[in-house]
């Protein structure tokens, strides 16, 4: 267990969660104007803060030796999934505790879940480094192209209001798919090992 915790860089992950929870009240209700090509809009800075945790989760998962872990008797991938779920739950509860200092905790928590899920999906087909870069780029693409003349595009869910059910569903689906991608990657690894 201590080996797993060390390899997963849990102290750094905890530090990133702490940084995220410090940033949330610091940015307050600040909004950043979005230079959108198809409309005028703004987004809460707090809604971008979960990128910190997403990058930390990817850094945590990247520090493994894939081949050793595929041969391990214990299901390390279950630990990974647990670590990600615990991280998301701690961040969401922490954000909820800060709701008096940060009016956008719902957006931030939804985006945290969605960003981590997106990164996990991208990681399954590339690697952790590309997942960080592409997830961040996806957020910026949503900022630039997400606002159409008829309002927010459905795929630009990170910019939606906290009350948006479709955006919350999208984030949840992405998170679930991301976790499933971990399990699927483990299964693929097992199959490779058996060959």
């Amino acid at each position: 267990m201590s080996w797993w915790l060390k390899v997963r860089r849990t102290p750094y992950l905890a530090a990133a969660i702490g940084a995220y929870l410090i940033v949330l009240p610091l940015v307050g209700e600040n909004r950043v104007p979005l230079i959108s090509f198809t409309g005028v809009a703004s987004a809460a800075v707090a809604a971008m803060a979960p990128l910190i945790v997403m990058a930390a989760v990817m850094a945590s998962l990247a520090s493994r030796d894939r081949h050793y872990e595929l041969l391990a008797c214990r299901g390390v991938w279950r630990g990974d999934m647990g670590l990600i779920v615990v991280t998301a739950v701690v961040c969401c509860l922490g954000a909820w505790a800060l709701r008096h200092a940060q009016p956008f905790v719902v957006e931030a928590s939804r985006n945290l879940v969605g960003f981590v899920g997106t990164a996990l999906i991208i990681r399954a087909v590339t690697n952790e480094r590309a997942a960080v870069a592409l997830t961040t780029a996806a957020v910026l693409v949503a900022a630039a192209f997400g606002h159409g003349r008829r309002g927010l595009q459905p795929w630009a869910w990170p910019l939606a209001d906290g009350a948006s059910i479709p955006a919350a569903l999208a984030a949840g689906v992405l998170f679930t798919a991301g976790l499933a991608a971990i399990a699927a990657a483990h299964g693929a690894g097992q199959a490779t090992r058996l060959r």
Partner: peptide
């Protein structure tokens, strides 16, 4: 993992 989000955002 720090530089890419920092630079882009």
């Amino acid at each position: 993992y720090v530089s890419m989000p920092s630079v882009l955002v």
